[in-house]
Design a protein around this nucleic acid. Structure first.
Lengths: 132, 132
DNA sequence: CCTTGACTTAGAGTGAACTTTAAGGCTTAT
DNA sequence: ATAAGCCTTAAAGTTCACTCTAAGTCAAGG
């Protein structure tokens, strides 16, 4: 069992964010002490791992909440859940390919500006030779 | 020369967004007709191309505006501009690598759920054989 | 025992990037 | 010449994903 601070340490999420995720239906049914403090289990950490994976690949929190809700409805939602993951995976792959294309353009621009910079530095060197 | 609508068609940005970008210092000094209508040049489209590249690889609009402002200050800002692009490029590469790791996890989870789904479907098939 | 500090909730505030609204001006086709 | 449908600005509203505040509860150390 882990305190909210333990989970913060392991995930890099703030306590505020963990409570927020719970309120939004992402990480549901976290156990409490009699005092009402959250007590996270290994299973909670496992679930949080998937949530972060989905979030960090750009799935909106609402959609993650939908996935979690389906999970709680039981096996009969497996087809929909698999379809969600499959579609999400395709989206991520497409976005990464797009990103790569944009990155290539940035690289090209960078090379272009680097060339201009070298030319500029040479000009400066000629204009001010051996001043030091 | 292009009207704002022409540019919308070419970039997929809305007229609202183009005006917003101008106000925020991203695409500056766009020509106007006497009536005050924007008239975009090929150079404007070129500049907009770089802006979209940077935006679509996750550079905040503020930072793009900073880059544009430096460009307008002239050659002496070349070192800073090259440094900005270089750092941005490194960030994008790092984010893409991270994304790939998360994607691998999603793929793994998807395979896991697909397995569960097949098992579930078989169970259903056995429970309800040849009902059609 | 009492203070310090971590925990609780509900709800307001933040920042990024738009997006829409309001109120009105120009251009083009008929 | 007049209506449709562009265009203008300033400013308010929206969505997302937090992030912070206020007001109060709980637990462990000195």
């Amino acid at each position: 069992m882990y305190t909210i601070q333990d989970v913060c340490g392991r995930t890099g999420l703030s306590a505020h964010t963990l409570r927020y995720y719970e309120k939004e239906g992402l990480l549901t049914h976290v156990e409490r002490t009699r005092g009402g403090f959250r007590q996270y289990s290994d299973d909670d950490l496992e679930r949080l791992g998937l949530i972060c994976c989905l979030k960090n690949t750009g799935m909106p929190l609402q959609e993650i909440a939908r996935f979690v809700a389906l999970t709680e409805e039981g096996e009969q939602t497996l087809p929909e859940r698999v379809e969600m993951l499959r579609r999400h995976r395709e989206n991520v792959i497409a976005r990464m390919a797009e990103m790569q294309r944009y990155l290539d353009k940035v690289t090209w621009k960078l090379d272009f500006f680097s060339g201009k910079l070298r030319a500029y530095e040479e000009k400066q060197a000629v204009g001010e030779p051996c001043t030091k």
